[in-house]
Computed example of a mutant assay.
Amino acid sequence: MNALLVDDSRLARTELRHLLRAFPDVTVAGEARHAEEARTQLRALQPDVLFLDIHMPGETGFELLASLETAPHVIFTTAYDEYALRAFEVNALDYLLKPIQENRLAAALAKARAKLTAPVPALAPAAGPEPDEPAPTPLTEQDQVFVKDGERCWFVRLADIRLFEINGSYTQIYFEQHRPLIPRTLQHLEQRLDNRVFFRANRQQIINLKWVESIEPWFSNTLKIKLRGGPEVEVSRQQSVRFREMLSL
């Protein structure tokens, strides 16, 4: 994949170019110091991926994107974490904080490869009504999601989330020692999560199967599952049957 690096700092561009040498399938097609130079490079090079700083002389990275009719896949590179939510609102693939870590860069490039190699969907037949809204994009356990609860924000790999649990009109997320609340339903999350990894244990909870520490028989032929780091989850009767069928040889 061809990449364009846009950053007013020559040192930052040099460092990113050096990190990208570890990925043989990535070619740095060009560099730009500000938005106007980036527009010229985008027209000439038509890169697959744009590594974009936010604070630059003249226009910001967001203003550059707003001025483009079409844009390549965008990975933001910045020293500031307060623009993360806005970055995902403009459909950025990822948001890398400086100094950029190689493992985070690898994860961002994996997302770019997945987008670039995804098959082009066939045209829908003309007959029939259009759906009210597009189907949610499925996520893998290696995807990183942005979570905001009040004034606190996190970037969390789905693989690190062990439990989603209804809490009032919100869903509570369990990862590390944190328990933020998000305005999403379990039904919405089920559509987006990989059902080979995330299992709907009951009406209230979705568990990450890779965090299961132990399983024991429970009342009325149900199961009780203990997750590493807690808590224990009681699987409903119907879902206990499905759990056995799904995971038995």
Results as ranks from 00 to 15, higher is better:
M1I: 05
D7G: 00
D8L: 08
L11I: 14
A12F: 01
A12N: 10
T14Q: 13
H18T: 11
L20R: 03
R21N: 12
A22Y: 11
A22S: 15
F23L: 04
G30I: 02
R33I: 04
R33L: 03
A38G: 07
R39S: 13
T40Y: 01
L42K: 07
R43C: 10
A44C: 00
A44V: 00
D48S: 13
L52Y: 01
L52D: 01
M56E: 13
P57D: 14
G58S: 05
E59R: 11
E59C: 05
E63F: 11
L64S: 05
A66Q: 08
S67Q: 03
S67Y: 02
E69G: 10
E69F: 00
T70I: 06
H73D: 07
I75M: 06
I75N: 01
T77C: 15
A79V: 04
A79E: 03
D81E: 07
E82M: 06
L85A: 13
A87M: 00
F88V: 08
V90C: 10
V90M: 11
A92E: 04
L93G: 00
L93C: 04
L96A: 04
L96K: 09
P99C: 08
P99A: 07
Q101E: 15
N103Q: 15
N103G: 00
R104Q: 13
R104I: 04
A114F: 05
P119F: 02
P121H: 07
A122E: 15
A124T: 14
P129V: 11
A135K: 10
A135W: 10
L139N: 08
T140N: 10
E141D: 14
D143M: 01
D143T: 09
V145E: 04
F146D: 06
V147T: 02
V147H: 02
V147Y: 01
K148I: 12
E151F: 12
E151C: 00
R152T: 14
W154S: 05
F155V: 09
V156W: 07
R157H: 07
L158C: 09
I161T: 05
I161C: 06
R162K: 12
R162D: 01
L163D: 06
F164R: 02
N167Y: 14
G168W: 07
Q172W: 01
Y174Q: 03
Y174P: 01
H178W: 08
L181K: 12
R184W: 09
T185C: 12
R192S: 15
V197C: 07
A201E: 11
N202A: 10
Q204T: 14
Q204H: 13
Q205K: 10
I206K: 07
V212W: 07
W218A: 14
N221T: 04
N221Y: 10
T222H: 08
L223I: 13
I225P: 00
I225W: 02
K226C: 08
K226D: 02
L227S: 05
R228H: 14
G229F: 03
G230R: 09
E232N: 11
V233S: 09
R237P: 02
Q239I: 03
Q239A: 09
S240N: 04
V241F: 09
R244I: 14
E245I: 03
L247V: 02
L247A: 04
L247C: 07
S248Q: 10
L249C: 00
